[in-house]
Simulated assay, not measured.
Amino acid sequence: MKKLLLGIAVSMFSMAAHSQILKPVNWSYAAKRTSKTEATVFIKATIDAGWHLYSQNVKDGGPVKTTFTFPANSAYTVVGKTIEPKAITRYEDTFKMEVSFFEKTAVFQQKVKLKGKTAVVKGTVEFMTCDDKQCLPPEEISFSIPVK
């Protein structure tokens, strides 16, 4: 009986601890072939209400900007910079400066030149989110996007 009660207590504690973890941004991925040798990968951020995801174009001294990294790969090459949608730009007291950010959703696009019939585009995104009360530490997420 003591083991059962201990197990229930541990389960309740771990559920309570897990519910404290904030994850206000969910990422999803897709790819679309645009020609025999090119494709565009789409990296979508779905942002919880009240939270901001910051642009790739934030000046020094502000929040951590969203950064995409694509390591060298023999199956494809990255073409140009990652494109982002039009951001909201506003003065934020927290940073004492104007910052650019996204609310609700943001779809980033990256063109790639394919070296074969298929590829898996791999990389990471580093980002930071804030609401009107707090900022979360920067996070880095790995992704893997098949191009067929």
Rank of each mutant, 00 (worst) to 15 (best):
S35D: 12
K96W: 11
T105D: 15
H52L: 11
T77R: 08
A75C: 02
T46L: 05
D60H: 07
Y54F: 15
T77H: 08
V107M: 05
A106F: 05
Q56H: 07
M15K: 12
F70A: 14
A49K: 12
D60N: 13
T94S: 10
G80S: 04
V25T: 06
Q56Y: 12
K122V: 12
E103Y: 05
F108S: 02
G61Y: 05
I47Y: 04
K117F: 07
K59R: 15
V79P: 03
A45F: 03
K81T: 13
V79W: 04
A87G: 08
A17K: 08
N57A: 15
F108C: 02
D60E: 14
D60F: 09
I43C: 07
V79K: 08
F101T: 01
V25D: 01
N73P: 00
T94A: 13
T118S: 11
R90K: 15
K115P: 00
G61R: 10
I47M: 09
T40N: 08
A119R: 00
K104E: 11
I83P: 03
S55L: 07
K86L: 10
Q110K: 14
I88D: 06
V64K: 06
S19P: 06
P63F: 03
N73Q: 07
K32S: 15
Y54H: 13
S100K: 12
S14T: 11
T46G: 09
T94I: 09
